[in-house]
């Protein structure tokens, strides 16, 4: 009996994943964007292998060299290779964006789900979220940098904190639609404990909408992170970070525009890709379309 059920089960459970994949394959733009993103991430990870230049070694003889055969993206005002710096910058930008989203996502989801499930905590938690939401992320970044000094971790912390309230709101609203369902009443009638109910019933049903929102949010987080380091709140100048590079290249905008434009373009491409993918993820994982 059991073996038979397992045998029948295999093609069935395998069918769910390709369904999402099939949708992705149909969405040609999203597919192209996904391939580009994978290439960019691979490029960032294997940056030292892709370029022989050290992103931190200055060369005063090769200052502000325009893009060419040797320096593909040119060099900046201290003669550092821009391709190497952009690749290392993307690495830092993507990593800090991912870490802050991860932290903010976990905290936000926990707060939102608890607010929906424990009705008494709802008001306190969500008003606290409103309070955090009322501070613009830039202001938050300034405050945190003022306390702990500028640096990548200050940016990550500011981004994470500013990510918590919107994710908590999304988590709460999707959890609210779950907590009134009969299957949750059934779970309580079975005698399941709150942790199990939250994990197996509430979180499993909310996960798609939260994940979609997180994907949509990724682009914004990258943009915010770049703005914060542009303002000098991120890693201090020698570091290769996209926002800092734009800020440094700003002075040379008329004499050597490529110094500012190359990191600008990198930010633009990454944010564009992440936004398109976020939209695609919404279409693909929307549980209503799936059913």
């Amino acid at each position: 009996m059991t073996q038979q059920s397992v045998a029948v089960a295999a093609p069935r459970s395998a069918r769910t994943t390709p369904r999402a994949l099939q949708r992705l394959l149909k969405d040609k733009i999203a597919l192209v964007m996904l391939i580009l993103l994978v290439l960019i991430i691979l490029g960032a990870i294997f940056a030292p292998l892709l370029t022989s230049f050290d992103p931190y070694r200055t060369s005063l003889r090769n200052r502000n060299v325009p893009p060419g055969a040797l320096h593909l993206f040119g060099t900046d005002e201290q003669g550092r290779d821009l391709l190497a710096r952009v690749l290392f910058g993307i690495r830092l930008t993507l990593a800090s964006g991912f870490i802050s989203l991860f932290l903010g996502g976990i905290v936000g989801t926990a707060i939102g789900v608890c607010a929906a499930y424990y009705k008494r905590a709802d008001n306190i938690l969500m008003r606290a979220m409103d309070t955090v939401l009322s501070f613009p992320a830039i202001l938050l970044g300034l405050a945190i940098a003022g306390i702990s000094g500028p640096g990548t971790w200050s940016v990550i912390l500011a981004l994470a904190i500013s990510t918590v309230p919107p994710i908590a709101r999304v988590a709460r609203s999707s959890a609210l639609s779950v907590v009134n369902q009969d299957y949750l009443v059934a779970a309580r009638a079975l005698g399941l404990g709150d942790p199990t109910i939250l994990r197996r019933y509430v979180l499993r049903n909310c996960a798609p909408s939260i994940l979609v929102y997180v994907t949509l949010r990724f682009g914004q987080v990258i943009l915010l992170g770049a703005s914060l380091s542009f303002l000098g709140l991120g890693a201090p100048p020698p570091a290769a970070e996209l926002g800092t590079m734009v800020s440094q290249g700003r002075a040379l905008l008329f004499t050597a525009p490529h110094v500012a434009l190359v990191p600008c373009f990198a930010i633009f491409i990454i944010v564009l890709i992440l936004n398109v993918l976020g939209d695609a993820a919404r279409d693909i994982f929307d549980p209503k379309i799936q059913q």
């Binding site: 009969d182 005698g191 404990g193 019933y201 499993r204 049903n205």
Partner: peptide
């Protein structure tokens, strides 16, 4: 919660009484 196995409930709406993210096996094994 330990006593709850002695009394159970069947719901009106079969469309909202099962967790859509759990297979029938998971639902019954729980």
């Amino acid at each position: 919660n330990r006593l709850r196995k002695k009394f159970q409930i069947i719901f009106q709406d079969p469309y909202s009484s099962l967790n859509p993210r759990m297979t029938v096996h998971e639902t019954l094994a729980e």
